[in-house]
Design a protein around this nucleic acid. Sequence first.
DNA 1: TTCTATGCAAATGGTTTGCAGTCTA
DNA 2: TAGACTGCAAACCATTTGCATAGAA
Lengths: 150, 150
Amino acid sequence: MTTADALERTLARSGYRLTTPRRALLEVMLGLGDHFAADDVVEAAPGVGRATVFRTLRLLQDLDVVCQVVLDDGRAAYRFGAADHHHHLVCSDCGAVSDFASGDVEELMAGIAQRTGYQIEAHRLEVYGRCGACQAKDAHERAPLAGATA
Amino acid sequence: MTTADALERTLARSGYRLTTPRRALLEVMLGLGDHFAADDVVEAAPGVGRATVFRTLRLLQDLDVVCQVVLDDGRAAYRFGAADHHHHLVCSDCGAVSDFASGDVEELMAGIAQRTGYQIEAHRLEVYGRCGACQAKDAHERAPLAGATA
DNA sequence: TTCTATGCAAATGGTTTGCAGTCTA
DNA sequence: TAGACTGCAAACCATTTGCATAGAA
């Protein structure tokens, strides 16, 4: 969880300040759920200019406060938390984004490096599927016993 | 390797035709190396309209003739061959793109599904690094014995 | 003749840049 | 005061769409 204080320290560490618009954007982003598009932030922060939103998003990315998620339709979104390299699970139904641990992925990378001779520097991994909740919901909708109200 | 004949059959199978512009685009793409941006194709095929290039690229993607690669700077490129699901290795130095087998990746996905409860439908995996050739080249450049001509 | 396919140009969506003004150490 | 930061609007880039025309079954 990122608080204004924590963000202020992070920014200060790199010589930046937590200004009023930046503070406002933090609030807005925290209120937007587990992931948000740049445009969501623009709309939810009427007092802040579009350019400032993009500049802030980029800054926070550089500082590893937020990270980018590529959604299944190719659009970009952001979410908090990027300090350690992790990967994303995107629910194709409800859109929820969650992380998963990367131990196995690191192993996989090592294996690829060994087999291909590449010196691996980075990777992108996004996994799309249906979360447990949405599967359960579908099961209910299909079950004629439950009250089908849609 | 994709030939005009093979492409014609693939198109026909889905009710499309290998028209003159499409044939020209195939030629151009084959000449562009292991990957190419949409714009590369537009420039290399002066007689064909931009829209046709994008429409053709999309069509070929749908038919699994080409697939998209997300480069490390986030730009999209295309490359031939997408019939079986595979993954890309992009050299961050020379830009070469190659594939690698996906057996381990499938295992990884199965593991993730099991641990997270997600029903996995798709994933994106791009790996960035330095290919063997570029590593060798660097080694030479750094070695004072070799004729340093740059 | 009918339907697919094309080229052009305009529209679009998302992001970046230029610039003059504002704020703060 | 100098430098960081901002808002606005214009610029940009890649991609898509509208539309009238050309081409093939």
